[in-house]
Design a protein around this nucleic acid. Structure first.
Lengths: 205, 205
DNA sequence: ATCAGGTTCGAACGAGCGTCCGAACGGCAA
DNA sequence: TTGCCGTTCGGACGCTCGTTCGAACCTGAT
């Protein structure tokens, strides 16, 4: 069990509410007063938990990345087949995205909002994640040049991250279906006539 | 030839500089004073050409959409094969994107920044563009359900629009190569072992 | 030279922002 | 009860923002 002090619990609550506010209004248009209203904590009371508005954004993005990378490791560690690994990665990314829409929208959309040491740290995590995907695609296509891998890697990230602009589970179907379809799209293409003769990958954990 | 008055020319110049500023700092963090500095026009002088900061963003996005939709029509009008049509659409989108990075980054990234009538008009153009893509994919896969088409449509937009976060021609190759690779990725998938037996589509105009 | 009208600008206004400070609160050990 | 310390908050400060206003400028026609 995670032991969490009263302090940690309230900080977590603040971060969640702040993510929702940032997601709705955008980081720069959102105000500390908005977050104060959303949490019920007074304006100056927030500064007991957080040094600045920047740190608030940093903590949201940091925890987001930590969780998703940790979850990814635990999914991939005992799978070797490259297609299965890609399927699991896409599933992991999209499931986490859909379960934490606000946080992931903030992570995707406010990437440039941070600066200084905060930005450096988040950028490093992003580079690590990108390298993981690139390596995975490299295992899938050993003859591909690195520039091809780069283009494919970010095409995949584009497909996945863009969902914050359009995806709503009630209208667009459950996440696992989305993950399956996106994996199929990325691996086999938008091939309508071709029925799948048994897929070698799964997005489910 | 386009006849352009002194007034129109200066407005165009302002819009271009404003797009660059918005692209670099983000709409809400950018200030009218930044745009004043970038154009050399005084702070209050800008208001002779533009009613408000909102209108500035609106004019940038509007002209962007108009150009891209007009250019698309002229490319697709005499082509019927669905795969060729998709190739041309992707090529048109990416070429325009790369040639007008600032404007297209603003269009992609600041979609929620507008409100009221401005937002409504831009949203309508966006819906029209999405419907075009969705119809095109429907022609490519007549048996697909509308929810599948929607997922595929926005997956494609995600791939294309995300490039503002990573693509640089000097490092990642010319746009036409990017367009070819993305079209192939979308239609056939990341199929490394399979050599292409003569593609039926082209991204070139 | 004079005038009119399109264009430009310096200076200011009111509002809203992130942040800080000092006092007050509350529960627990002595 | 007293005193301490982690926690909370009202109120304010200094700054920057978008926008406005009236005067000055420039140019071409009379």
């Amino acid at each position: 069990m995670e032991e969490q002090s009263r302090y940690d619990a309230k900080l977590t609550r603040i971060l969640r509410a702040a993510a929702a506010v940032f997601a709705e209004k955008g980081y720069h248009r959102a105000t500390i007063r908005d977050i104060s209203a959303a949490t019920g904590v007074s304006l100056s009371g927030l500064y007991y938990y957080v040094r600045s508005k920047d740190e608030l954004l940093y903590l949201i993005q940091r925890q987001c990345f930590e969780t998703i990378l940790e979850s990814l490791d635990s999914e991939l560690c005992d799978v070797t087949d490259p297609e299965r690994r890609l399927g699991l990665l896409i599933g992991n990314h999209l499931r986490f995205f859909a379960s934490n829409m606000s946080e992931m929208k903030v992570l995707s959309h406010e990437a440039d909002a941070l600066s200084g040491d905060y930005a450096k740290e988040i950028t490093d995590q992003k580079r690590e994640y990108s390298a993981t995907v690139s390596d995975l695609l490299g295992a899938l296509a050993p003859q591909a040049r690195s520039v091809d891998l780069r283009r494919a890697t970010f095409s995949l990230f584009g497909m996945m991250n863009w969902i914050y602009t359009w995806y709503r589970p009630d209208r667009d179907g459950p996440v696992n279906v989305l993950a399956t379809e996106m994996t199929h799209l990325f691996l086999r293409g938008f091939a309508p006539g071709v029925q799948d003769g048994g897929s070698r990958y799964t997005n489910l954990r």
